[in-house]
Amino acid sequence: MSEAVTGQKALMDDVYSLHRHFYDLTRRFYLLGRDRLIRQLAPPPRGTVLEVGCGTARNLIMAAKQWPDARFYGFDISEAMLETARKSVARAGLSDKVILAQGDAGSFDPQSLFGLDKVDRVFMSYTLSMIPPWQDAIARGARCLAPGGSLHIVDFGQYERLPALAKRLHFKSLNDFHVFPRRELPAVLKRVAEDLGLSLEFRSLLRGYAWSGVLRRA
């Protein structure tokens, strides 16, 4: 690992060494739009689904139950989160359907991590706001899409139609946990779509509380 990646791994392990034990219980109240993303995945039969920054594997478990014919993969930079993820996957009886690995979102390679050349669905749920090389993560996710594949993203928006005070207070609390909503996300998605010949669907959810984007390969 590079020095930057090692530093980020240590930071995330430190942040979530305690919080991972009650992460899913608390985040359900403000990581909005995750279930909508999962419903939209609709992978093909025997298709492959990859989550970038899988955390506790909450999303992968829900997706594997909703789409039982697909194969699921996830990675995270934090070994602490992966420890919780492995236990959750085993408890759900999905150890043969959900494969986990440790990896960095800014430099991941599905082939080296999981032996996958291309992936039918890639998704990133409230993880780009925590990844320093987040633009690289989007580009890598888009490049590994199989024909007909799609990259699905949901993350914090910019509170476009919500009170400015609410935005300041919420963003301050997020920043304290090293979470930084990406104001440039729409422009970056547009650039990646143009560079790689992908179509782009972008939507502001809940008056700008969250942003949703889908990149599709023809």
Rank of each mutant, 00 (worst) to 15 (best):
F177C: 11
A63H: 00
R36K: 11
A10S: 11
Q158W: 13
A10Q: 10
A137I: 04
W211H: 13
A92I: 01
S129N: 09
H21W: 12
I138S: 00
A105I: 00
R71H: 15
A80S: 14
Y126T: 04
M62K: 13
L128Q: 03
K9S: 11
F123T: 02
L215N: 04
S199Y: 06
Q8H: 13
T127K: 06
A70I: 02
Q8L: 11
L200S: 08
A80W: 06
K167H: 11
L215W: 01
V154S: 11
L11A: 07
I138G: 03
D136G: 10
S2K: 10
M130G: 14
G197L: 02
R217E: 11
A63Y: 01
C54L: 08
A42R: 13
G208Q: 02
V49C: 00
F108D: 04
K118D: 14
K65D: 11
D176S: 15
G93I: 10
R91Q: 15
E83C: 14
G157C: 08
R217P: 05
S150K: 14
C54R: 03
V5K: 09
F177R: 15
P44N: 08
L25P: 02
H152V: 01
L41Q: 05
Q40V: 06
V154F: 06
K9T: 07
G47L: 05
F22M: 09
